[in-house]
Design a protein around this nucleic acid. Structure first.
Lengths: 155, 155
DNA sequence: ACATCCGGTTTAATATTGCAACTACACAAG
DNA sequence: CTTGTGTAGTTGCAATATTAAACCGGATGT
């Protein structure tokens, strides 16, 4: 009864979840984007079992979200840092955060807010825009079959 | 060794994941936002076990993401539709989708693109803005402790 | 030389998942 | 009235994943 893989699915949402849609991966990525890099840092911050952490780090590296780099402090160990592909997950973290800020039942339990580093002001809410600058909600969008990429039909 | 709950966590990302951070919930929400409403529709679309679907629908209803409404077609059955809290998840789905579009190794396997219903043009990429309109990446942001909401200190 | 830290792996108990079979109800046909 | 069909689940069991805790091996500190 293997956990069904979504990797072959045509839906881009499912494909993303296949990569980091489990309980811990996104939290590891969140920690990494906050500057944590060491096995021990992740483990202490997240409080998950070490075998699971090891396993998650391994697959995140395999999938190009994290990469291992030699010790920044001269020690023998490795550190885990986000690749560009991993940093690309940032908007997803922001969207999750903002959803909680807007809808959580106990907003008083939210510990932090995200601010602009330059002036300390809260960031704006994410919004989806059309090419001509209107804000779109779900009902204003549609899914279209992806146009097939034609392979050098020229000539 | 119960699956650790993130509900009490101060991190808003963790709190969101606690609500719909498991393998299937977000896909159910995606389907719901595409207009699917019936148990059987979800089950056929997702191909998951019926007991799991029943369990996920139950908790999504409990948590105010979905609500059950009486049959829209006059039948005896119930349907599951998104609440406003559930519709608020839309930006997260968009962010996931766009991440795959940008970083997936096999973009040719992505079946659909999201377009503006009004003119059929692709939507813009989500971006995080500062109050004064600059685009912010992760490095340009910071987390600040949430300012305590003071309770009527006046007088 | 000895203890400790770091980054894991191994083990065993427990929880969750998946499949398939079964139930319950409404409705329709014969 | 009896049988059949569709929908929406529940139940039981086997397979797999998660967890906590013990263990391990190489560096480092004293």
């Amino acid at each position: 009864m293997k956990r069904t893989s979504l990797a072959g699915d045509g839906c881009p949402v499912a494909r993303a979840l296949d990569v980091f849609g489990d309980w811990w991966s996104l939290l590891i990525i969140r920690d990494a984007s906050l500057g944590r890099r060491r096995f021990g840092e992740f483990q202490e911050s997240l409080g998950l079992a070490k075998n699971i952490l090891a396993s998650r780090l391994r697959t995140l590296v395999e999938r190009g979200i994290l990469k291992m780099v030699p010790a920044s402090d001269g020690s023998v160990y490795q550190e885990y840092v986000l690749t560009p592909k991993g940093r690309g997950i940032f908007p997803i973290l922001v969207a999750l955060r903002q959803w909680t800020e807007e809808f959580d039942e106990h907003p008083d339990e939210i510990a932090t807010i995200m601010v602009d580093r330059d002036n300390g002001k809260p960031v704006k809410k994410l919004a989806l825009y059309s090419q001509d600058g209107r804000v779109l909600d779900a009902a204003a969008t549609m899914l279209k079959p992806r146009p097939a990429k034609r392979k050098r039909v020229t000539a």
